[in-house]
Deep mutational scan, measured.
Amino acid sequence: QNEKLANELKSLLDELNVNELATGSLNTYYKRTIKISGQKAMYALKSKDFKKMSEAKYQLQKIYNEIDEA
C-alpha cells in the first residue's frame, strides 16, 4: 500500500513544474501554496511515512484543482 501511494505521489510531483508555471498570472497564494505543497511531498516521499504521504498527496491534488479552476 505504501508503494502504491508513493507512486501516486511521485506522479503528482512530476506535474509540479507544469502547475507551478500555470500560477504565473495567478494570485501569490497559489505560487506560495504549490511550492510549499511540493516541498512537503518530497519530504514525505523521503520519510516513507504513510500518513505524511497521504496528507501531501491530498494537498497537491487540492492545489492542482484550485489552479485548474482559477
Rank of each mutant, 00 (worst) to 15 (best):
Q1N: 09
N2H: 14
N2S: 11
N2A: 13
N2V: 15
E3H: 06
E3K: 09
E3S: 07
E3N: 07
E3D: 09
E3G: 04
K4C: 10
L5N: 00
A6Y: 15
N7K: 13
E8W: 04
L9F: 01
L9E: 00
L9Q: 00
L12H: 00
L12K: 00
L13R: 00
L13F: 02
D14Y: 09
D14V: 06
D14M: 13
E15S: 11
E15R: 14
E15W: 12
L16C: 05
N17P: 13
N17Q: 12
N17R: 14
N17A: 14
N17L: 14
V18S: 11
V18P: 04
V18D: 08
V18R: 14
N19Y: 15
E20A: 13
E20R: 10
L21Y: 07
L21G: 07
L21H: 06
A22C: 10
T23R: 04
T23M: 07
G24S: 13
G24L: 15
G24P: 04
G24H: 15
G24N: 13
S25K: 12
S25I: 07
S25H: 12
L26N: 04
L26V: 03
N27S: 15
N27E: 08
N27H: 10
N27G: 14
N27W: 05
N27P: 14
T28H: 13
T28W: 14
T28C: 15
Y29N: 03
Y29G: 03
Y29R: 05
Y29E: 04
Y30R: 03
Y30Q: 05
Y30L: 10
Y30E: 03
Y30A: 02
K31G: 06
K31W: 09
R32N: 12
R32I: 14
T33L: 15
T33C: 15
T33D: 02
I34N: 00
I34Y: 02
K35P: 01
I36H: 07
I36K: 06
I36W: 12
S37T: 11
S37E: 11
S37C: 15
G38K: 13
G38M: 15
Q39L: 12
Q39S: 07
Q39C: 13
Q39D: 08
K40W: 10
K40R: 12
K40Y: 15
K40I: 11
K40N: 10
A41W: 02
A41E: 01
M42E: 08
M42C: 09
M42G: 04
Y43N: 13
A44E: 01
A44N: 00
A44R: 00
L45T: 01
L45E: 01
L45A: 02
L45G: 00
L45H: 03
K46R: 10
K46A: 14
S47H: 06
S47T: 13
S47R: 05
K48W: 06
K48C: 11
D49M: 03
D49Q: 03
K51R: 09
K51M: 09
K51V: 11
K51L: 11
K52P: 01
K52F: 05
M53L: 03
M53S: 00
M53P: 00
M53K: 00
M53I: 04
S54K: 12
E55D: 08
E55S: 06
E55W: 09
E55K: 07
A56S: 04
A56R: 00
A56T: 02
A56M: 04
K57A: 09
K57T: 05
K57Q: 04
Y58K: 11
Y58S: 09
Y58I: 10
Y58G: 06
Q59P: 00
Q59W: 15
Q59M: 14
Q59G: 05
L60V: 01
L60I: 03
L60T: 00
L60E: 00
L60Y: 02
Q61K: 07
Q61H: 05
Q61V: 06
Q61I: 12
Q61G: 04
K62R: 09
K62C: 10
K62P: 01
K62G: 03
K62I: 05
I63H: 01
I63A: 03
I63L: 08
Y64G: 02
Y64C: 06
Y64H: 04
N65G: 06
E66K: 06
E66M: 12
I67H: 02
D68T: 14
D68L: 15
D68I: 15
D68H: 15
E69Y: 11
E69I: 11
E69P: 03
